[in-house]
């Protein structure tokens, strides 16, 4: 098994973990963390699969580079929205889940 495939498999595991976290966590900040882990997992899978036994592939690298920057913007926007929700409703969870702040 080559190193690249190992990272791709890790990416798959991280993706599934992030997905489970996004479904199961109540706290919005934790959901944002789970979303980031999910994203990192898919990036790892893309790059790892592109690198199997060959020269480094620039196309997935460019795609993931844009992905990383978009992910940080999405994180910041999500944090701003969560903060707004907190100041309006006093809770850090979505309607339907039990209230949490900290």
């Amino acid at each position: 098994m080559s190193g690249a495939l190992l990272y791709a498999l890790t990416g798959g595991v991280l993706f599934a973990m992030g997905l489970a976290g996004m479904i199961l966590q109540k706290h919005l900040l934790r959901r944002i963390l789970a979303f980031n882990i999910l994203g990192s997992g898919s990036f790892l899978a893309l790059i790892g699969l592109g690198q199997r036994g060959g020269p480094p592939d620039p196309v997935p690298q460019a795609m993931v580079l844009t992905g990383i920057v978009v992910a940080v913007c999405a994180t910041a926007l999500a944090l701003a929205l969560a903060r707004r929700l907190l100041s309006l409703t006093g809770t850090m969870s979505l309607p339907g889940d039990e209230d949490v702040t900290d």
């Binding site: 790059i47 690198q51 920057v69």
Partner: peptide, 22 residues
Amino acid sequence: LDAPDLALAEAAIGAGLTGALL
């Protein structure tokens, strides 16, 4: 994974931005 471009971006964003935001 031989992707220094990504390592650069991840280092800059992970160390400089995401940490501060969170």
